[in-house]
């Protein structure tokens, strides 16, 4: 048995509107808005690292949950832009939180990384107690790599989200989760050490539009929860059209899917937990009401998690 105890987030202060992105990408603000639905995103400062964003999100989360860092049994940091091969940001974050023995695990998984982190934590909580799952990305470093690909660069932003998964209690119990990987599509969405992000958008959307609803349906069917009875869907914020497509595939209203992509763009692994933080601040879990989390991204990796308010 595991619980979602609470969420937290960190969004860099600098707001980058479409006029600035148009200058970076050689496009126009109207074109950016038309192809993405994104009005602005956040960019971290040049000297701000993924570990900095992750630590700030962790502190926000722990504060909201009322859990002291000393009570953590494990730290998991997910993301695809850690900045160096090793050690990853998880160790830095754990050190900054004052932890000296708790295992700190990096998941170099963009986009779906936070969902994978939650699913793993749900299974490990019985042994490790409070597990802090963080997802953090500095996509601004990636999108400015030359040659800039406008259709990709305008989509992304920086940020971090966090969640404490607890074996003891919390406002929602994790009922079930599924995670999947399929390496047949590794070249369709990939990031080398110095190259720009490569994305075959059509392949990504084709796969995501099918795999996300299927994963969600799998856990809902297993738990006998009709999609129409789900209180809220909190999904990786990749693209509003994708979110709408998933809603259509499940036969539910798109308004059931929390969305903040207009304000932050796609913050990759960080997006789902940033969305969860805002959603929880706006009301969050209600007693007995099911809530679905879902993610999809490079790999491809994808999955879904069902929680229920207690």
């Amino acid at each position: 048995m595991a619980f979602l105890k609470g969420f937290g987030a960190c969004l860099p202060a600098r707001v980058v509107g479409n006029e600035e992105m148009a200058a970076i990408t050689g496009t126009t603000p109207d074109w950016i808005l038309n192809i993405s639905g994104i009005e602005e995103r956040r960019f971290a400062a040049a000297d701000e690292t993924v570990a900095d964003l992750a630590t700030a999100a962790a502190q926000d989360c722990l504060s909201r949950c009322g859990v002291p860092a000393s009570a953590l049994g494990m730290v998991i940091v997910a993301g695809g832009t850690s900045g160096r091969s090793f050690p990853g940001p998880a160790l830095t974050v754990a050190h900054r939180l004052g932890l000296t023995g708790a295992p700190a695990l990096d998941l170099p998984i963009p986009s779906a990384g936070s969902l994978f982190g939650l699913a793993l934590a749900a299974r490990l909580a019985a042994e490790y107690g409070h597990i802090l799952v963080i997802s953090a990305e500095k996509m601004s470093d990636v999108v400015r790599r030359q040659p800039v690909e406008p259709g990709v660069a305008v989509l992304f932003g920086d940020g971090a989200g966090a969640c404490v998964v607890s074996a003891a209690d919390g406002p929602a119990e994790i009922i079930d989760s599924v995670i999947y990987s399929d390496g047949a599509f590794t070249e369709d969405l990939c990031l080398d050490f110095a190259s720009p992000l490569h994305m075959n958008g059509r392949a990504v959307i084709m796969q995501a539009t099918r795999k996300i609803p299927r994963a969600i349906s799998e856990i809902l069917d297993r738990c006998n929860v009709p999609a129409t009875e789900v209180d809220a869907f909190i999904m990786h914020q990749a693209n509003q059209n994708l979110i709408d497509g998933v809603a259509r595939g499940l036969g539910v209203l798109s308004s059931r899917f929390y969305s903040n992509i207009r304000r932050y763009g796609n913050t990759s692994a960080a997006s789902m937990l940033i969305a969860a933080t805002e959603w929880s601040q706006a009301g969050g879990f209600r007693g007995g009401a099911p809530v679905v989390f879902a993610g999809f991204g490079a790999g491809f990796n994808w999955g879904a998690l069902l929680a229920r308010g207690v």
């Binding site: 059509r202 392949a203 959307i205 084709m206 796969q207 099918r210 795999k211 059209n241 497509g245």
Partner: peptide, 27 residues
């Protein structure tokens, strides 16, 4: 476009009574 493509594949499956496996979902 990227978002019409999945809808078309679903329509093809229904019209022709075929199943398009994920491994064939390439543009």
């Amino acid at each position: 476009d990227s978002f019409a493509l999945p809808d078309m594949v679903t329509a093809l499956e229904k019209e022709f009574g075929i199943t398009v496996p994920d491994s064939d979902l390439t543009p």
